[in-house]
Design a protein around this nucleic acid. Structure first.
Length: 829
RNA sequence: GGGCGAGUGGCGGAAUGGUAUACGCGGCGGACUUAAAAUCCGCUGGCCUUAAAAGCCUUGAGGGUUCGAGUCCCUCCUUGCCCACCA
């Protein structure tokens, strides 16, 4: 008998699959469609490790299972090639990004193929192909025409190492999401996509999709719509007539307001510094304000955070009047107030807000209580009272007294609107998406700047605006893209007036390129349009989208916005791209740490294949290690178990093929029952994505067949044929090579992967004896073997008569009897 | 500070409110072998017991609902992830 040798069979079938094209999707089929997609990877210099592989293993198992169940399946693969990872890799290695992408995609593709993943490679493309970014630019212009792409000069996050601006989503704890360096603020003119126009729809439409609650709440929190009111305060002691608008979600506490704080960047503060707003008594405090603001603006975001709870600030010498009670509230400036949230101004209610409390303590401002807790405590405040809506009641608040907080909030807003003190409004945590990058390796923004015509879009027939090759493309750091150093690129003619003009030199954020790639897979080689509407209508939306949760507030939000823009423009009929989203759990190193090249703890599939485990064992291990959506530590020992399992499948099938087969044997019924039971178990598990339990069921199946083999050494020929073939088919989505090889050894000429998923018959599953558990007072006391068709009365009688039960019920009254059909009898005495 | 999860043997984990610990790893024993590896077959939560039987205990802690709770409810502890001076 030949030994199981993955090194021999795996490359053979990979080649055969490529030649026969069994994974190619047909755009024209009577079968129902299924579009299964994994996030397309960015081909960095580091090869894929077993953590990445898990993602694709899940997608591939779903794909194969769907195909065997009669679906026309689209399972494509491409490359998220533009962006910093590729460019930084190119800079480090001294080769061009174009060349780096070619090298890295070749490497990645080879890794994917050797894992046996069944992709339709005829649809492969990279986002850096001009044939692709042609249409990324076209979509930019669509957004531009619809007023959703605009330019604005403002303070932006700037990464001093990557030398580019970053979107709000790409700053994590004050650090660049790519390189981890502290970000700075820089005043630059930048391009934005108006994603805030879509904020409410992006939040509301989460109800339409089948995503995990965790991910939905992450997106909702990021969008962060908050209801509140803009209160207008009149400045009481300025020479000129001035007003300050303050956004708050808690106007109910306004009777407890004791001061106003503005952000250092606030225009009002700027005017105070320039002495255009001065108190009637004369300009007394402007110098302190100026000193404070200068110091505050010089601080980095990280520095601000490191100060933590220690509040700083300066008094402006000005007061506003609280229209509710005519109290005078001093106006302060402090950097704990953010200019880009709400109105950049806060009303200080130190009795009921932690930050306001800290500020008041720091500067000795009054602290008042206007809400009591459920315990009715009215003692002087020594810490900020975080009173929740359910328990708090208003005090010291005039007409609001006695009301619960949420009632008081509404009543206060009504009151303020009636008296013209404020206007209800809402605000978002979400900001517009900053998409321009001062980097070389991206899709050029298709805009021309003309001295007489202004900002002019590049006409469709002049697309794509091709990224020119550059010898040295390092970022300059002066806020200008490297493309600004290429005169042939920059200097052009205005499409409108044909006068001399200059091209926009910023490139687009890589996330723009990945915001529509899933549509392109439906029609990847279309040169006339981004896609044919018919093909997209057939394939989209994506049925199963598989990837990690790290994209929750970036890619997944951006792509949803683009799809809504396209929907509104009539290009597509759906407005959500990913109906079901699957976030796979991360594979950690055996020590529980994240795998990374820098830590040197990555485990690469190539090595395991080289060691002889084979791709199939790795795939089994990826799924069997635990629930697909939970993280797990990689186990070196576990690999041996996966390999042993496949080896047992191999040996069993070899023995079956070699055996002299009789027509009938002694265990035919048991064999068939085992087969049908396994089909049911695996089919059920596949529906709920229980890959680990599906594999466990297959292991049990194999163990059972090994035992049956002892009593019936392949005597029942037809039954054995059935159980072995079912085993191979049920295993095929997980271990495509070994099953294909054995399937052919059994005499089939078609691929196991296009065979029909086996069906089970309930009638075969029924047994004539069943086991009933007997409980007395909730404790298991006996097991009863009874005929499957026995009636409840017979079973209860038998239970009471059981030797092991009698001692517990003898001489006692049975107060209650519960019979759960087919399961147990519960007696209460 | 806010929002989501998760706590089960030595380890990864399984369990529509119905025999907790399936399956795998590891460990122990046996068969095969000159021997080892590989393979095959058993055993493997804790306490008590020479051993077995029987019994008792056990799903982070404590309460509750129920004939019956890992599962449902309440309180607490621990831990992971995401967001965060967001007003």
């Amino acid at each position: 008998m030949k030994r199981y040798n993955p090194k021999e069979i795996e490359p053979k079938w990979q080649q055969q699959w490529a030649e026969s094209g069994i994974y190619r999707a047909s755009d024209d089929s009577k079968k129902p469609k299924r579009y299964i997609l994994e996030y397309f990877p960015y081909p960095s210099g580091a090869a894929m490790h077993v953590g990445h592989v898990r993602n694709y293993t899940i997608g591939d198992a779903l794909t194969r299972h769907a195909r065997m169940n009669g679906y026309n399946v689209l399972h494509p693969m491409g490359w998220d090639a533009f962006g910093l990872p590729a460019e930084n890799y190119a800079i480090k290695t001294g080769i061009s990004p174009q060349e780096a992408i070619k090298q890295n995609t070749t490497r990645f593709k080879q890794q994917l193929i050797q894992m046996g993943f069944g992709y339709d490679w005829s649809r492969e493309f990279a986002s850096s192909d001009p044939e692709y970014y042609h249409w990324t630019q076209w979509f930019f212009l669509l957004l531009f025409r619809k007023g959703l792409a605009y330019q604005k000069e403002s303070l932006q996050w700037w990464c001093p190492v990557d030398k580019t601006v970053l979107a709000n989503e790409q700053v994590e704890n004050g650090r660049c999401w790519r390189c981890g360096s502290e970000v700075e603020k820089k005043a630059l003119k930048q391009w934005f996509f108006k994603i805030t126009d879509y904020a409410d729809r992006l939040a509301a439409d989460l109800d339409k999709v089948n995503w995990s609650d965790a991910l939905k709440s992450m997106q909702r929190n990021w969008i962060g719509r908050k209801e509140g009111i803009n209160i207008t305060y009149k400045v009481a002691n300025a020479k000129t007539s001035e007003e300050i608008a303050v956004f708050t979600t808690r106007p109910d506490t306004n009777y407890g307001a004791t001061f106003i704080v503005l952000a250092p960047e606030h225009p009002f503060i700027q005017s105070v510094m320039r002495q255009t707003i001065v108190p009637k008594e004369g300009p007394s405090h402007w110098q302190a304000v100026e000193q404070y603001v200068q110091k505050a603006l010089a601080k980095s975001d990280v520095e601000r955070k490191e100060e933590g709870r220690l509040k700083s600030g300066a008094f402006t010498g000005l007061y506003v009047t609280n229209p509710l009670n005519n109290k005078q509230l001093p106006v302060w400036v402090s950097d704990f107030v953010l200019m880009d949230f709400g109105t950049g101004a806060v009303v200080g209610v130190p009795g009921h807000d932690m930050r306001d409390f800290e500020f008041a303590k720091q500067f000795d401002l009054p602290i008042e209580r206007v809400v009591v807790g459920s315990d009715g405590d009215k003692s002087p405040i020594t810490r900020a009272e975080q009173v929740q809506e359910e328990s708090g009641k208003m005090i010291n608040s005039d007409s609001l007294n006695g009301l619960a907080i949420h009632e008081a909030t509404q009543k206060m807003m009504d009151l303020m609107e009636e008296r013209g003190m404020g206007v209800r409004t809402h605000t978002y945590h979400l900001r517009d998406w900053l998409i321009s990058r001062q980097r070389y390796w991206g899709a050029p923004i298709p805009i021309v700047h003309c001295e007489s015509c202004g900002v002019v879009p590049v006409p469709d027939d002049q697309l794509p605006v091709v990224l020119p090759p550059m010898q040295s493309f390092e970022p300059s750091g002066d806020g200008r893209s490297p493309l600004a150093r290429v005169p042939e690129f920059v200097n052009t003619l205005c499409p409108k007036c044909s006068g001399p003009a200059q091209r926009e030199t910023d490139t687009m954020d890589g996330f723009a390129c990945s915001s529509w790639y899933f549509l392109r897979f439906a029609d990847p080689h279309n040169a006339q349009a981004a896609f044919s509407q018919g093909k997209v209508k057939y394939w989209l939306p994506v049925d199963d989208y598989i990837g990690g949760a790290e994209h929750a507030v970036m890619h997944l939000l951006y792509a949803r916005m683009w799809v809504k823009v396209m929907h509104d423009d009539g290009l597509i009929v759906f407005d959500e791209p990913f109906m079901t989203l699957r976030n796979q759990g991360m594979i950690l190193a055996p020590d529980g740490q994240k795998m990374s090249k820098s830590k040197g703890n990555t485990i690469e599939p190539d090595l395991l294949i080289e060691q002889g485990y084979g791709a199939d064992s790795i795939r089994i291990m990826e799924l069997f290690i635990g629930p697909w959506n939970q993280s797990a530590n990689w186990s070196v020992e576990g690999m041996g178990g996966s390999f042993r399992f496949l080896q047992r499948v191999w040996a069993l099938t070899q023995d079956f093929i070699a055996a002299k087969q009789a027509e009938t044997g002694s265990k035919e019924a048991e064999l068939r029952r085992a087969g049908h039971r396994a089909i049911k178990a695996v089919s059920d598990d596949m529906r709920t994505l229980g890959f680990n339990t599906a594999i466990a069921a297959l292991m049990e199946y194999v163990n059972e067949l090994y035992k049956l083999k002892i009593d019936d050494p392949f005597a029942s020929k037809d039954a054995w044929q059935f159980v072995v073939e079912s085993l191979l088919q049920l295993l095929a989505p997980f271990a495509p090579h070994i099953t294909e090889e054995l399937w052919h050894q059994l005499g089939h000429t078609d691929s196991v992967h296009v065979s029909e998923w086996p069906k089970y018959d309930e009638a075969v599953l029924t047994v004539d004896q069943m086991t009933i558990v007997v409980q007395v007072n909730g404790k298991v006391r006996a097991e009863l073997s009874v005929a499957a068709n026995a009636g409840a009365e017979t079973i209860i009688e038998a239970a009471q008569a059981h030797d092991r039960v009698k001692p517990y019920i003898e001489g006692k009254e049975i107060k209650k009897t519960v019979y759960v059909p087919g399961r147990l009898v519960s007696l209460v005495v």
